[in-house]
């Protein structure tokens, strides 16, 4: 396929990438579904009220610390569970890049180690920027 010098990394990618990505993706979808059904079952009034509040409210911000988020999710709060599900979902691209980084380290390919590290740092910088911005 893409490059004549990348046979080994392709083989590893073909075996592991689908397994890892699918596992994270399915985990996120299961958590989201569970949260959504819990919300519909337990807190439908909260959902409707929250939805109407969002309509026409451009400056929505709901920032919670990760520890309080995890705590509410563990106590079965549907909002917390869904937020955790969304966070797990965004781990899929992070995991993909991290996996590529490991592959290039294994290949000892300096240029691509640097390029992939830049992408990883960019993703982490996005979290920091969002937190402080």
């Amino acid at each position: 396929m893409s490059n004549s010098t990348t046979t080994d990394e392709e083989r590893i990618l073909r075996v592991w990438t689908p397994v890892i990505l699918r596992t994270i993706l399915i985990a996120a979808i299961v958590v989201l579904l569970f949260g959504l059904f819990s919300m519909a079952w337990q807190s439908s009034g909260y959902y409707v009220a929250h939805f109407h509040r969002l309509q026409g409210h451009a400056n929505y911000q709901h920032r919670e610390s990760w520890s309080s988020l995890a705590s509410t999710a563990l106590h079965g709060d549907p909002h917390g569970i869904m937020t955790i599900g969304l966070m797990v979902l965004t781990l899929v691209p992070l995991a993909r890049v991290a996996f590529c980084f490991l592959l290039f380290v294994k290949e000892r390919d300096g240029i691509y180690i640097a390029l992939t590290a830049y992408v990883l740092i960019g993703l982490v910088a996005g979290v920091v920027l969002g937190r402080v911005g």
Binding site: L32, G35, L36, M39, Y47, H50, F51, L54, Y60, Q61, H62, R63, E64, H79, M82, T83, G85, L86, M87, T90, V92, P93, L94, R96, V97, V119, G122, L123, G126, V127, V128, L129, G130, R131, G133
Partner: peptide
């Protein structure tokens, strides 16, 4: 990966409305 980078900024900033996004 591109969308993930943007989503991480939105999530970290608290701009993702869970009741809509889920």
């Amino acid at each position: 990966v591109t969308a993930g980078a943007g989503a991480l900024v939105f999530l970290a900033r608290g701009d993702v409305a869970t009741v809509i996004a889920a």
